[in-house]
Each structure stands twice: as C-alpha cells, then as structure tokens.
Amino acid sequence: MATRVGVVVFPGTNCEHDALAGLEVAGARGTLVWHTETQLRTMDAIVIPGGFAHGDYLRPGALARFSPVMEAVGRFAAEGGPVVGICNGFQVLTEAGLLPGAFVKNRGLKFVCAPTTVRVEVTHSVITAGLEPGTRLCIPVNHFSGSYVCDERTLAHLRASNQVILRYLDNPNGSIDDIAGIANDAGNVVGLMPHPERAIDELLGSADGLALLRAFVSSSACVRAG
C-alpha cells in the first residue's frame, strides 16, 4: 500500500493540490485534511502546505496554530510521525512551537517569487534522508514574511545539533545564517521555505523538488514499518 500523507488545509491554504501532485509523483497517496480534523491516526505522514492560512491575519501562522488539527499534528509529531511544513506551513509550525524561531518580513520589504538554489546540509531529517550533503537543488520560493529569525542561543543549538537542513546559496530574504529549512531535534518535524512541490518537472523549470519529496515519502514508509 502506498504511503498515506495527510495534506492539511486551512481556510486560505492554496498549495494543497500542488502538494498532492508532488506527493503522487514521489510515490505517495495524498489526502486532504480539513483544519477542523482532530484525528490523524490513519496517516503515515503530514504535510502543511503553503498559502495564507486564516488570511495570515495577525502574523502568518498565528491563528492557524489554534485550529483543532494542530493539536492532532502536535500529538502526531510527538509520537515520531513525519511532519513537513512548506512556506506558510513552516510559519505555522514555528507559531505552534513545533519548530524554534519565527519569521519577519523579507529584507527590503520585497515579496520574493523566484527560483533559489539551496544546499542540503544534513541528512538525518525526514526530508533530506538519503541525499548527499552539499547537494544543490534549484527550488522556487514565494513569500513576503520569509526571513527566518531566532535568538543567538537557539541558533547555536540549531548549528551544534545539525538541525539546519537547507541553506540558501543566494539568500533571497535576509534569513539568519542563510537558513532555508530546519528540523526539530529528532529530525521528524521539518520546515522549509522553498516549495519542492513546485519543482517536480523540468517543464516547471526544475524537478529538483522531487529529491526532497521522495526522501520524505521513503522516510515516512520507514517510520510506518517501524
């Protein structure tokens, strides 16, 4: 049976169908999960896709964090379940406290929608497992509040425990330490600003996102197999 991935949809989410398409190409079966859902037991993995959850009112992710599904996502993550937040999903995970840090508006107050090159830094996360450290991937970003910030202590911890999984080669938003993606201590919860689901075919400019999605689907299958 194909790995079953729940794709969380908040009011205002807009990348859920791209995520489904990407997961399908990567060999998984995606299912949309409405934000009022409180049960994720039938899922092998969870994706929180991009968009503008709850209109991004107050701060991106600030209100989404209080949607019922987030309590279930928290339990799922605590039990070791693979969770990846993409763009707005990354913002939701930081607001929910599942990943450290926060986001502020891009350097120069510019909305950035462009291909970026990121470097795979570590491979013990569910989205980089099996890749070579140093691998360069061309994946687009599309955000206004994409500048990752955290305090010095958190940054030191992220570095020391190899939780920075992706770095920009040409930092598009002013993120601290060129951070494009991080994982939690255990490596099962991941957030990244670039959109791998928008880089799944050369026709879209790049198919590099598939490497991450395939890694995610394989590690999710491993978790299920125990």
Binding site: E95, A102, V104, D151
Partner: peptide, 8 residues
C-alpha cells in the same frame, strides 16, 4: 498567547 510572538 496570541497577540505577540515572544520570539520576535
């Protein structure tokens, strides 16, 4: 809890 994000 909501209005401010203490990280920033």
């Amino acid at each position: 809890r909501l209005l401010a994000n203490p990280v920033i």
